[in-house]
Simulated scan of single mutants.
Amino acid sequence: MPERMRLAGRTAVVTGAGSGIGRATAVALAARGCHLALADLHAERLAETAQLVAREGLRVSAHRLDVSDRAQVQAFPDQVLAHHVGVDLLFNVAGVGLGGTYEQVTDDDVAWVMDVNFWGTVWMTRAFLPALRSCDAAQIVNVSSVFGMVAPAGNVAYSASKFAVRGFSEALRWELEDTHIGVTVVHPGGVATNIANDARVPDGVDEAERQRKLAFSNKRLRMPPAKAGEIIVRGVEARKLRVLVGWDAVALSILTRLVPVRYWRVLRSWVREDLAAGGGSGPQG
C-alpha cells in the first residue's frame, strides 16, 4: 500500500482549470497548500480560477494552452518550470463532449474529441514525465468518465476517447509500478459542469433533438464541482489507483461487474423510462 501523499509544498499542473472539475480540483489543491500551474484554452475562465486560488505563500501561474496542439504541449514544461522549481503532480482534466450516433458524427468530429480527450492526455504525460521523475514522489491523474466504464448508444466517439484514457492509464500504471510515479484514473459521474452545454453538436443532429439531449444531460449533472474536486484530491492523497466520483459512477462500476457485456439492456430500460417522462434520447457523460 503506497504511503499517503502530503500535498503541501508540492506543485501540480492542472489542465482544464478554467471551469468545472479542473477548477474545483485546483481549489482543493490550493486549500492544501499545493503550488499550481493552471492551464486552459479559455483565458478569461483561467484568470478567474487563478484569482480564486491565490493566497499568500502559494505560487500560482496561469497558462493558455490547447492540449490538442502537440507543439504547444511539448513547449509547455519549460513554461511551467520558468515559474516553479519542479512538478510533482499532473492532472489531465481538460476534456470536451460530443454526442451523436456513429452515423451522425463525422470523422472530423471523432478526431476532434480524440485529440482533446485522449491525445491531450498522452502528450501531456510524455511532456511532463522527465519532471515527474525528478521529484521524490509523483502522481499522474487522468480523468476518464463513467463512459470510460460503459459505452451507451449515442456516445460512440466520446466513449471511445474515455475508454482510451482508461486503457492508457492502466497500462502506464503497471509500466511505472517500480518507480515513485503513481497513476490514478478518475471516473466522474454526473458532475454539474458545462461539458454538455459546451459539447459539439454534429451536423446530423437537428435542434429539437439537441435540446432534448441537453435537457437529459443537465438533468443528471447534479454533483457540485467542489464536491467532485474534493473526492478527486482525497483520492490522490491516498494514491488510489481509481477514483469513482458520485453514486452513479459507483453503480455503473457494479453493473459492469454483474453484466459486463449486456449492461446496455439495463441502461436502455432506464433511458426509455426517462424518454416516456419527456427526457432526451440518451445519456451524455
Rank of each mutant, 00 (worst) to 15 (best):
T125M: 01
S144F: 13
P188H: 12
L176S: 08
V205T: 07
T193G: 02
T125P: 07
V205I: 15
V143Q: 00
A138E: 00
F147P: 00
S159W: 01
D203L: 14
P130Q: 04
P152Y: 04
K162F: 05
E175N: 14
A138T: 03
M149D: 07
L129E: 01
V141R: 00
F163T: 05
D136G: 15
S217I: 02
V141N: 01
H180M: 09
G154A: 08
N142M: 05
A215M: 11
V122F: 15
T125A: 09
G204W: 06
R210W: 11
K213E: 09
L129V: 10
D206T: 06
K219F: 11
R212S: 06
G182F: 04
V191I: 15
F128A: 02
W174L: 13
F118R: 02
A208W: 07
R173I: 08
T193C: 08
A127L: 13
K219G: 15
G167W: 02
A153N: 08
V205R: 03
P130V: 05
T121R: 02
A160H: 03
G167P: 11
R173G: 07
S169Q: 10
R200K: 15
A151L: 14
V165Q: 02
W174P: 08
A164Q: 05
R212K: 13
R133A: 11
D136Q: 11
A127P: 02
Q211V: 12
N155M: 14
N155A: 10
R210G: 06
